[in-house]
């Protein structure tokens, strides 16, 4: 039993350390765990992906908690989450201290100067892809999802009137989704 916990800790520490590029990047590692240790099945992992998109919090944390829970209940969930976060805590705190100390350094300034447009472009590209996939669906403009376009337009009009509080948009959009899908 203690051996499994140790193994769980070690495996999730590794995933936390080597995941690069957001929560979904940890999926290949999780599939490997499923295959190698049989801690949980492929089907459970697929359900997990579905549920991660609709539960609060970062996707990666949902995944660590869920797969830890499937392996060894609450204890497993705790150990997996802790082990998963630990490398980030160890590394990022040190990075912050170093950056804070060298914030006037020309290399640090220059890297940040280039990373800012990169971040904007990457985030915008996600928005564009989402817009394309859920509304345009293809480049012919013949298969536009008008229901989705309608919801996005209403949300867009709300931005002129409402505060910029994301919670308002998230929940209005959910309610709109239910109304629109039931009416049409």
């Amino acid at each position: 039993m203690n051996n499994i916990l140790l193994l769980l800790f070690f495996e999730y520490f590794k995933i936390g350390l080597f995941t690069y590029g957001g929560g979904y990047a940890s999926l290949p590692f999780l599939f490997h765990l499923s295959e190698y240790y049989k801690w949980f099945s492929y089907d459970e992992l697929t359900q997990l992906i579905a549920i991660s998109g609709i539960t609060p919090g970062p996707v990666g944390l949902n995944m660590a908690t869920f797969s830890g829970f499937k392996t060894m209940g609450i204890t497993g969930a705790l150990v997996a989450s802790l082990a998963f976060i630990l490398p980030m805590l160890l590394i990022t705190v040190q990075v912050f201290k170093a950056l804070d100390k060298f914030k006037e350094n020309k290399y640090v300034k220059s890297v940040l100067y280039i990373l800012r447009p990169t971040s904007c472009a990457l985030i915008l590209s996600v928005g564009l892809k989402l817009f394309y996939n859920s509304i345009l669906t293809d480049l012919t403009f013949k298969n536009i999802d008008y229901l989705a376009l309608f919801v996005v337009l209403i949300l867009f009009l709300m931005t002129f009137k409402c505060k910029r509080d994301p919670a308002i948009y998230i929940f209005s959009a959910g309610i709109l989704g239910i109304i629109v899908k039931n009416l049409f």
Partner: peptide
């Protein structure tokens, strides 16, 4: 209705990204 709810939430992300990028 849970799929409809999250279908809407997914669309909200488009607007949230627009707001975030506009700001910075």
């Amino acid at each position: 209705n849970i799929d409809s709810f999250f279908w809407g939430v997914n669309l909200a992300v488009v607007i949230l990204i627009y707001l975030a990028v506009k700001e910075v």
